[in-house]
């Protein structure tokens, strides 16, 4: 079953099959349905790579919340993507502790080697999106970089090309 929504796009439901089962398994862990919102949004992002308007409406419906409320929450948290990103999402920590250890040079190296050109943009081949992220909490291992779910420590500009080969 697909539902049409305001934007006119056809949305294929996320919460079917195993993803539905994962959602159902969350309910006993919280006393209210609303509390399942963050984990439910993670399920959407894991399944689809980002949270579309259609998915947002679906989450609202299954949790008994309004789409406006869900949107307010989604946009508060920086890790939820509200638009499509590259196949591999690269986050380079550039807050002060890493910054003084050369993090901005690491960012430049990622922008150069991925062909993204600028922060937040997706490379023409759709392979990468690179952003700067605030403190990843691994300051003793400057510069930490989060590529999808892989946490890579001690990245230097020289290592960037080699690291990227692992992401097609």
């Amino acid at each position: 079953m697909s539902t049409a929504h305001a934007a006119g796009e056809t949305h294929q439901p996320v919460f079917v099959g195993p993803t539905r089962a994962q959602l159902e398994a969350l309910f006993p862990k919280y006393p209210t349905k609303q509390s399942v919102l963050l984990p439910a949004l993670w399920l959407v992002q894991e399944a689809r790579g980002w949270i579309s308007e259609g998915a947002l409406h679906e989450v609202a419906e299954v949790l008994g919340l309004t789409p406006a409320y869900v949107k307010g929450v989604v946009t508060f948290y920086t890790m939820y993507h509200t638009h499509p990103v590259g196949r591999h999402f690269i986050q380079v920590c550039t807050t002060s502790p890493c910054n003084i250890c050369g993090a901005e040079e690491v960012t430049k190296a990622f922008l150069r080697h991925t062909g993204c050109g600028e922060l937040g943009a997706t490379s023409p081949d759709g392979r990468f999106t690179v952003i700067e992220v605030e403190c990843l909490g691994a300051c003793g291992f400057a510069t930490p970089v989060l590529i999808d779910d892989d946490f890579v420590e001690g990245v230097t500009p020289e290592r960037v090309a080699g690291i990227l080969q692992g992401y097609k």
Partner: peptide, 9 residues
């Protein structure tokens, strides 16, 4: 219950 944040200091 392990509850995962989503990027907010």
């Amino acid at each position: 219950v392990v509850h995962r944040g989503a990027g907010a200091y």
